[in-house]
Structures are given as structure tokens and as C-alpha cells.
Design a protein around this nucleic acid. Structure first.
Lengths: 207, 207
DNA sequence: AATTATACTTAACAGAAGTGGAGAAAGTCA
DNA sequence: TGACTTTCTCCACTTCTGTTAAGTATAATT
């Protein structure tokens, strides 16, 4: 059971997706049959096969109840707008996606922002330490979760039990965090720095 | 025809929306009847009424083909992530949402960004004339379409057949556009300035 | 070579689902 | 008050749909 997905099955899957897209509701099995100019049972077999392979979900004896399962969307490469949590206080440097730490959600405004399944999180910028890089207080910064970084990256890191956003540099064996504001001194670390992620995008609201 | 929407009709509408939300497909009329513990025809009459009032759309003789119309969503205050077009070249100062002027789309990352049906559009920032305000080249700026502005607003306006983004000021009867960069001189206008919209939010991508 | 899965056919049936007529009681509106 | 509209009932009917039975032929696996 559940071998590979055949070309025919893929095209049936695509028909279903297109039908839903176009009509707002799923096709009846007879609609599939008509589209592929085959018998009702032929279409039925395809639908059952797709169901068995987990590409679609369906309710028994219910008309037009086909849903594209996550797996089916993957096959067709349909991407949904990803929702990224805006984290509030980050206690003791642990990234937690638990409800009580999530302030709100942003959905990614551009499809190009979604990455190969990388974990993303967002922080609200506090203070003016990065104004020189065009990052202002209350901006929403979206990070890709990662424990390391390259020189020149803008990162979120834990400094004194607080999340902070700074430029990341490696200088002669040490790590340096630099603000983009001359009023803030550079901070030096000898490797025990807890990096949370790397800045991927920024969202600002006016008014 | 099409008088006000009754409480009962509202609750039927809500049931339909909830059903779709929960199941992924629309209810059959008999599902409505069951939910409201009334006859099939009773439910049918409600559905027909909702259709006549433009709150739902439906296909004739098709099972489970109910769709919530835009008007129906308004009644239930269901907000969908709004998609905003990123406009490319703006020819001769006319805002056109025609396909060939649309580079891409951004969907609004936060629900709070959607406004009372205001028309929004986006531009990609060119040049560094607004760096002082934390607006950098290639940032995506989202504007609310409006022909006027208040002193201090950041606006998109047409200057010499090009869209430009600047601070907007009124000074002794004239309009002044100021850059947020001392390298750019102020521009003065005696009212024939074509304002396209006011900056509402900003999106930046790193890498 | 034997088995299993794919991709169909024709035919039939039962249950699901939409539609319409003919009321009736209650509420709304002018 | 009279004319609608809303909200329902009961019943009948048609159409739509999912499902099953019983095969056939081809391709892919084991």
C-alpha cells in the first residue's frame, strides 16, 4: 500500500485543487469523471487511491467533501501564508513558542520569505540601538532560528537575560555585538553568547 | 425584496460559516435543517433568503455549493488577509492596478493593518533619500491611497512623472516635500502636487 | 511467474441533497 | 387594517452522488 504517486493521480489531484480554487467547493466524483472523460467508477478509484495515499481527506457518503491534505498540497507545491509568532519576554534565553509567550502573529507578506521549513520567530524592537541600520523602536523583526551567525549578520541574542538585536562580528577569536548607534558601546563575548536567530525581515507600522 | 437581515438569518449565516470553518466544505441544506431543528424546507427558505440578499452564493442543483459572499463576510465581520499589489512604474502619475503594472503582491502581515475598506498599494523604495527615517532602498512601502495629506506624513507623490516617497509639509500656502537625507534638496509646490497615498507600513527583507 | 497496483468498463442501487407546491402562524410595515 | 415577509410544516419529486459488484487489460513489483 501507498506506493508512489502516478502521473495520472497527480493530474487528478491537480484537477481537484483547480476545481476548488475556481468554484470554492470540491468537485463531485462525477465531475472528476467528466473532466477525465472516464466512467464514474474510474474516477472513484482515483479518488480512493489519493485518499489511501493521504493526499486528500474525505468524509464517507458526503458529497463534495474532498479536502486537500497537507501532503497533497506538498505534492502540488501549494504554499500557504506562514504565520510567525511575535514573542514577548524571552525568559532566561530560551526560545519558547508556548502560548503565554506569544504576543501576536504575523503572516509572511511575501511568498519568497518562506524558507525550506526553517523555524521563524518575531520580536518587537525595543529602544533605538539599531537606528543606524534603519531599525526603529516598535518595528517587528523576523528572525530565522539558528544558534550561530556570520560576521555582519544582524542577530537576536540573549544578553543579561534579555533578548537584544545587534550586529554580529567575530574578531580575533571573540564575538562582538555592535549597535548601529554610537551611543551604545560594543559588547564582547568569549563564545558563551546565546544566539537566537538571524534577522530575515522587518515590518514597520506607521500611525 | 432584500429587506434587512433578520437575527435568524444571521445565525444561519453564522452556522454556515462555522461549518465551513470546521469541515472545509459547505453544509448541505439538510445539515442546516438539523442544526436548527426544523424542516428541510424551512432551512431551504433561509438559504434562499440569504442568497437573495447577496450574503451567500450558490450553484443551482449542486450539493454543498454554498459560498459566503463578500457581503456575508462583512455581516459576520470575517476578515481575510488582504493582498496588496506592489506597483512597478507608475506611468504619468495615474495609479493603475492593471496586471501589467503589478510586480507582485504582499499580504498584510497583521490583521490590525487592514482598514475599513481603504485602498492600499505598495511601492518598492528606490534610492536612499529617506534613510534618515529608517527607510532603505528596496524596502517595500505600503500606502493608503489618498489625494491629500497632513504635515509630517510620509507620502508617495508624483514628481516629474515618477513616484517619489518623501515627508509632506504645508508651509505658508505651499507644499514642501522633504527627504530624510541632507543630500537631497527640499522641493516646493504650489498645490498642483499629485499625492498618491500616505505611508502606512514598511516591509524589509534581509539577504 | 505470481502477485499486486493501476486504470479503466458497464450496470445498478441507495442514500444524499436540492427544489417546489400548498398551506399556516406570527411578525413587520405602511 | 391589509399586504407583505418571515419562519415553519408536511409531502412529493427529481436530480445528484457515493458506493458496490463484477470484470478486463496493462504495467509494476517481488
Amino acid at each position: 500500500m501507498a506506493k508512489r504517486v502516478t502521473d495520472k493521480q497527480k493530474s487528478v489531484l491537480k484537477f481537484i485543487a483547480d476545481y476548488v480554487e475556481g468554484n470554492g467547493y470540491a468537485p463531485a466524483i462525477r465531475d472528476v469523471a467528466e473532466a477525465f472523460d472516464c466512467s464514474v467508477k474510474g474516477a472513484y478509484d482515483h479518488v480512493v487511491a489519493l485518499e489511501k495515499k493521504g493526499l486528500i481527506e474525505r468524509a464517507k457518503n458526503r458529497s463534495r467533501s474532498i479536502l486537500l491534505a497537507t501532503k497533497g498540497k506538498q505534492v502540488l507545491q501549494i504554499e500557504e501564508p506562514q504565520r510567525v509568532p511575535i514573542l514577548g519576554r524571552i525568559a532566561a534565553g530560551v526560545l519558547s513558542y508556548a502560548d503565554h509567550h506569544v504576543e501576536d502573529f504575523v503572516s509572511l507578506p511575501l511568498e519568497s520569505m518562506a524558507e525550506d521549513g526553517a523555524q521563524l520567530f518575531a520580536l518587537r524592537i525595543q529602544g533605538d540601538s539599531m537606528v543606524g541600520a534603519g531599525i526603529k523602536e516598535n518595528d517587528i523583526a523576523i528572525f530565522r532560528e539558528q544558534q550561530d551567525a556570520n560576521t555582519g549578520d544582524i542577530v537576536a541574542a540573549i544578553v543579561e537575560d534579555e533578548a537584544t538585536v545587534k550586529f554580529f562580528f567575530r574578531q580575533s577569536g571573540r564575538i562582538v555585538l555592535k549597535a548601529a548607534n554610537p551611543l551604545y558601546p560594543d559588547m564582547y563575548f568569549s563564545n558563551e553568547l546565546r544566539v537566537l536567530g538571524k534577522l530575515k525581515s522587518l515590518i514597520r507600522l506607521y500611525n
